[in-house]
Every structure is written in structure tokens, then in C-alpha cells.
Write a protein that binds this DNA or RNA. Sequence first.
DNA 1: CGTACCGTTGAGCAGGCTCAACCGCTGTGG
DNA 2: CCACAGCGGTTGAGCCTGCTCAACGGTACG
Lengths: 235, 235
Amino acid sequence: MVSSQHIPPFRAIPALDPGRTADAVLLTERQRQELENIGLRQRFPPRTVVYKEGDAAQWVFAVTEGAVKSYRDLRSGRRVVSAFLFSRDLFGLAANGQYVNSAQTIARTTLYRLPVRELAVLLRQHGDIQFAFLSKLTHELRESQRRAILVSRRDASGRVAMFIAQMGERLDRDATGLVPLPMSRSDIAAFTGLSLESISRAAGDLERRGLVKFEGRHSARILDPAGFAKLTGAI
Amino acid sequence: MVSSQHIPPFRAIPALDPGRTADAVLLTERQRQELENIGLRQRFPPRTVVYKEGDAAQWVFAVTEGAVKSYRDLRSGRRVVSAFLFSRDLFGLAANGQYVNSAQTIARTTLYRLPVRELAVLLRQHGDIQFAFLSKLTHELRESQRRAILVSRRDASGRVAMFIAQMGERLDRDATGLVPLPMSRSDIAAFTGLSLESISRAAGDLERRGLVKFEGRHSARILDPAGFAKLTGAI
DNA sequence: CGTACCGTTGAGCAGGCTCAACCGCTGTGG
DNA sequence: CCACAGCGGTTGAGCCTGCTCAACGGTACG
């Protein structure tokens, strides 16, 4: 059990250690203490903009609890969501001292805020802590590639099914197979590269095929795991 | 001038240092020496498979010279190219001791091969070297997000134009604006998420509009930088 | 010189986008 | 307590562009 008072251990699959399939606990209690000495815990209500693209990047954030989206607004008015961040995720890494994306909370969220300059010093000093960050970044990179594979699908239903599958892996779903989807439909659209309407139609399609039942706006139950896996695997 | 005898400094934009727009030289001579002590330089002819998805991940690779593609073959027979790697890039980071993608050389390529276990030990000991790897990974993550933005475009011509623009930034183009495209059309298709035919038609379209002239199969000259920038910026 | 692969071009189809109207929940103020 | 505005989501009609299938061309390499 991870107390929300503290920096969470990162969620990441270790580079080494074959055979270990579960996520590794990437920070020891002691290492988290080191980070907490320079960090600050903050709570945010839903729909709070944590930072905007181009802002001076003063902090790196770790999600303790809740959900955040990282996105970019394009000139055309379209928005691309590059990632959803949940408990034990890391975000806010900058280029040239500026944030590359914008970040906004989706739900009530607790973040740990680490000042980037002090963090850089601390990481250089503590090889093990830095290695945890390195592993986490490697994990994020793979996650980003999985999104690329999702987007390579042509069919909207398949994309949405893969999206639900990915959320099911990342978020704790209960024993009954209920997958939480804290984000809005238009966020899902901006992430999957589909239009809002296509998400809606794809959801209807998955329901009609008896694969998934959407319960309320923010959760989906997988009714036919075999059929669902067949669809998500049919890349 | 970087000698191809040595591990190249990584190409990455530093997280801090606002104002510095040029790529940072991420490894000092001394640090490269440390890495070279555990590494091995290798030359590969074109179309050599460096590793396959699922292989035991024994090494991490740094590109000294040449070009490599990182890809995954999907069950459907389709292929997704997740990244092209050039001089000063890093690849081969694993999950659970296995490679996640496959990697194949596109041109004649020189790689520096670093044994992953020894590298992990070295990184934990040398905070600065590890920080270079951390910065490089951050850079790769952003690069991956740029691909996501490219793929979010609907129009084939726009995607191909953005692809050429990205290659122009990463590879050294000469003063005349000639951008090298070492990969095949089908590699470009697998990267941009378009069909081979669409790449071909988009290339023809860009030529007809007088924006780009394809010279041979492996280079493109930007004839109308303003018009080209207008197209690539119209996201 | 022949062959195989990479790339181009053409015809027709299909699936997702756009525009538009509509629905239902939520929160607010009279 | 109710009326209403506003937002998020759903549904419909028609268009458009990229995909598929297919044939052909050109070039690199043995």
C-alpha cells in the first residue's frame, strides 16, 4: 500500500530481470525520502492546468493519485493528447528549459513537484535514484510506441478497443473487468487520432457486438474477454 | 568533427539551459573513454538485422555513423517503424531483458555496442554519464511525440512534407537544401502510417506543387522553403 | 543480360470526417 | 422548485481521401 503522502514508486518494467512480469517498485522508501526533501506535495481539482507549453520548466512532477493529460494544441485548433498520466507516472520533462506540452488534471489529483535544478543535482549524486528515473523514462518511451501501434490501426473500433485494453493494463480494474476511463470522449479522440463522433460510433459498435458495455461515462466493462482480445490482437 | 572510431556524443536538446538552441554535446571525451572501455565498435552492411523483437537484450547500441530503423512486425503482416536512428542516436533499451522492437541497418552503419549489465553498473557509478543517457532518453521521448503529431495529420502530402522536414532537421542537409532520405519508400510508409502508394502519390503531389524535387530515390530538395514551411506548419 | 525488387500509376471502394441537429445531464439563478 | 443555459455526448447524411487490388515501369545487382 502506497500512502498518498509520499512520492510514489514509479510504475515501470525493468530493463533487466527477465521473468519479472509485474511492474517493478522503482524507488525504495529511503530514496523517496531524499526526493521528498526537495519536493512539495500538491493537490489539484479537476481541469486544472498544471503548466502550459512554452512555460519556463521549473518543476518535474510525479503523480501520486489521480489523472493528468499531456497535450499539445495545434494551430488548426486540433488537439493531440500525447499521454495520460496516472498514479506512479512521471511528467514535465523539458527541452531548453521550456515545457514541450501542456498538462491538465482530469480528475482530483495529487502531484509531487520536484524543482528541476535541485533534482538534476540530486540525480547526479545518487546513481540509484537516477537509474529509477532512467528506467521510468525507458518505460514511457515504450508506452509512447504502443500508442503509435494503436494509431496505426485503420478501424475506429479496433483503436478504441486497444485504448480500453491499455487503460485496463495501466489502471487497476476490479475483478469484474470494469475499466475506469476518467477522461472525456474528446480526450480519447485526441489521443487515438479519431474524431469525437468516431469514438462515439466505435463505442456503440463495440456494445452492439457484445464485447464491451459502457457503464456511465467513465468506465467500460469487458463482457467477452476472448472476443475482445481477438479484436485488440488483430493488428 | 567526431571521429567514427569513438562513441559519438549524443544528439539531444538539454532539459535546462534555456537559450541554447543547438544540440548539446552530451558526452565529454573522458566520459566516452569510460564507455569505450566496456564497449565494442562494429560495422554492418546495409539491411543487417541487429536484433529481433524478443531477443535477449544483451547490448545497448549507439550509432556512430549510418542509419538504422527500429520497427515491429504486426500479426497482420503490417510493419510499424517506430524510429529511424542516425549518428549520435541511442537504441536497444529493453523491457524484462528482451528487446521490444527489431532493429535493422538501412545503410552501411557503424555502431558502438555496450553490454547492458556492465553499462548499468557504470551508469550507477558515474552520475554525469548517466545524466547524458537520461537527457538522451528525454530527447527520444519528445521525438516520439513529434511522430505522433505527424501521424495526427489527415492529408498524405502534409505527412510526407513533415517527414521530410524532420529528416532535414536530424540529418545534415547541405547548403542547397538537399535532404537525405536513406530509407526506402515502404519504410517511410511504415513510419508515417500511410500506404506505399500514398507515399508515392504524395511525393508526386509535392513535386507538382513545386515545393520539393525528389532527386534519385534517396534525397529530396526543398525548392520553395516558404511554401514548404507553410504546409508543414499547417497542423 | 536477365531477374527481382522497389516504385509508380490507375480504378473503384470503403470508412472516417465534416456539418448539423438533437439529447440528456449538471449546475445555477430566479 | 423550476426554468434555462451550457457542455458533453449521440445520431444522421453526404462527401472525400486514402486503401486495396492490379498492372506496369525502371533500376540495381548478380
